[in-house]
Structure formats: structure tokens, C-alpha cells
Design a binder for these strands. Structure first.
Length: 301
DNA sequence: CGTCAGGTAAAAA
DNA sequence: TTTTTACCTGAC
């Protein structure tokens, strides 16, 4: 089945958005198990021309499948309108050329996005994605032969933190601890965050909040600072007014708008949200990949 | 072996 | 409120 919305699937999958690790690459498609309601569904998505082509296996209707993919790949977002917006500003005009078809890769599971985002802090894309895959294989549910969901919060909150704790209780170690997934000092953050969502914070409430309210709320989660909070709200909850600002976005914004002058990350965030409004999330996404692909990033290093 | 990576938390200025 | 500092880990 084809969904007629332009997208570059490869680029979107591999763009390092912290909603989730990339789906499993097949010969010319990407596969993943996704929970739709309480039903596990295996999606196989590929690219057909400019459009998204997909199949699915699972006990849901075609309409439900389309709706889920529409959400995950943000297919209702009007890219051409966004490109017009970019082309009207000299600082941004070139960007669509370098990442045409790049879309938001939204969370299939908000909780997974939160843990992924915590894991991404002060980390490389390769390493945090591997950590998430390890966690899925160790503690997630297995479906369709070899596909794993992300483990539930009630499982993560009670995991051993490291080998020492594991051997203390078990008398031996068999990799049944968080640090064995390479998450380092983020392990206690993940446990505390899972505990928080289990006992007091209801994630579905976030959707009902204003951006500022949601930001202040999610900022209370252990291991979540301003950058990670913005990632969670953008990639996990589809708040497109978020402008996640890290050291790279700072360098790019500083280069494009402040004549190379060093601006604090927090001021870059304020600037981005003010300047780009509802397009802030997409502008951030395009800025980062434009810098990556145009060679600007090498230059700014 | 030292440095660095798409920051955060805690301490200090 | 705005700056420092330590920090798991794996790649270079």
C-alpha cells in the first residue's frame, strides 16, 4: 500500500532523532514491531518513488495501520509549504536542497522516546541507538520471530543498575543489568524516570498541556535537562514549536544569525522558538542535517 | 593512553 | 541566574 506523501525514508530513518533507534533494515525496506492499542503489528516500510510504501502483519484494520504510519512519519505535515517557508529566508534557503524528504520520525511509544532521549545526552548516535536495541532484546517482548518491543516502565524501574548490584543479589552476573547495555551514568536516571512514570506522572497528560507547561513538567524527570526535554516534546509528543538546542545547533545558529559570535545554548533555544514559531522543530531538524551534509559542520568544528 | 561525543546535576561564582 | 566540574563508555 502506498501513502502519497513525499518522504526520504532512508534519510528520515537514519537521521538520529531520539524517538527510537532506526528500524531493522531489510534488503530495501525497514521493519519494526509496533504496538497498536494492545495488538503487536509488524510493519515493513519502503520507498516507492517519493512516497511511502508499506505492508503490515497483525490483527488491525488497514485504516488503523495507515493512521499509525501517518503519525510516526508525520505524513500530514506539508513539506512543500515548509520548503517555501525556508526559501523565503536567506539564512535557511539552501537547506531543503540538502535534505529533501526528511521528516520527523515520531515515537511509536512515548516512554521509549523518553528513555532514548535520556540515553542520547552527551552521547553519540551510534552508541545510544545500540543501547536501546540491547535493552529491547534483553527485556522487551518478542514478536514475529525476531522483533522486540521496548521494555515497560515497570520492568526498567526494578532492573539492576550494574554488575555489582546484580551479583550481590544473584551471586553471579549474566548481563541482566542496565549498565551492560552501555548506558553508563544514565542508568540511575532511567530507573528513577521509570519509577516516576509508574507511581505519579501520567504521560497522556502531556498532550493536554501547553508547550511551556509540558516543558516544565518533563524537565522534572531525572536525567532530563533542557535539550533532552525539547527532544522528548518534539519527537515524542509532536510539539513542533520545540527547538532542541545543543552544541551543534548553537554553532550553526551562531554562524547563520550572529556572525559567528558565541551564544549560550539557552539563548539559542529562546532565539529559535521566537524566530521560527511552529516551524522551530523542523527548522532544527533541517539545520542539523544541512550542516552535516553541506560540509558546514566540518567547517564549524 | 588522552581526548571527545548531539548534556545533566550539583556545586560554586 | 549564569558558569564550572565530574561523569560512563567506546571510538579514534
Amino acid at each position: 500500500m502506498i501513502i502519497k506523501a513525499p518522504i526520504d525514508l532512508e534519510l528520515t530513518q537514519m537521521s538520529g532523532q531520539t524517538s527510537q533507534p532506526p528500524w531493522l533494515r531489510q534488503e530495501d525496506s525497514f521493519r519494526e514491531v509496533v504496538m497498536v492499542g494492545d495488538k503487536p503489528v509488524l510493519f515493513d516500510v519502503s520507498q516507492s518513488g517519493d512516497y511511502l510504501d508499506f505492508d503490515f502483519t497483525g490483527d488491525i484494520s488497514k485504516k488503523q495501520a495507515i493512521s499509525k504510519l501517518n503519525h510516526i512519519y508525520d505524513l500530514d505535515f506539508d513539506l512543500n509549504k515548509f520548503y517555501k517557508y525556508l526559501s523565503n529566508q536567506s539564512e535557511l534557503a539552501e537547506m531543503s536542497e540538502f535534505c529533501r524528504g526528511l521528516r520527523l520520525f515520531l515515537a511509536k511509544d512515548e516512554f521509549e522516546c523518553i528513555i532514548s532521549s535520556i540515553s542520547s545526552a552527551n552521547n553519540s548516535i551510534r552508541r545510544w541507538t545500540k543501547s536501546m536495541c540491547d535493552m529491547k532484546e534483553k527485556w522487551g517482548n518478542k514478536y514475529f520471530d525476531n522483533y522486540y518491543t521496548f521494555p515497560d516502565k515497570v520492568i526498567i524501574k526494578d532492573l539492576f543498575e550494574d554488575e555489582v548490584e546484580e551479583s550481590l543479589v544473584c551471586g553471579e552476573t549474566c548481563g541482566n543489568n542496565l549498565k551492560s547495555c552501555g548506558v553508563g551514568y544514565r542508568a540511575p536516571y532511567m530507573k528513577k524516570a521509570s519509577e516516576l512514570f509508574t507511581v505519579e506522572m501520567d504521560l497522556s497528560e502531556i498532550y493536554k498541556m501547553s508547550y511551556d507547561e509540558a516543558f516544565e513538567t518533563i524537565l522534572k524527570v531525572p536525567g532530563v535537562g533542557p535539550k533532552v526535554a525539547d527532544c522528548i516534546l518534539l519527537y515524542g509528543f509532536n510539539f513542533k514549536e520545540a527547538f532542541p538546542s545543543d552544541v551543534w545547533i548553537k554553532r550553526i545558529v551562531s554562524h547563520l544569525y550572529f556572525d559567528g559570535k558565541d551564544i549560550s545554548v539557552s539563548k539559542v533555544r529562546d532565539f529559535g522558538m521566537e524566530q521560527f514559531g511552529d516551524n522551530a522543530g523542523y527548522v532544527q531538524l533541517y539545520m542539523f542535517h544541512y550542516a552535516r551534509m553541506s560540509g558546514l559542520m566540518q567547517k564549524l568544528k
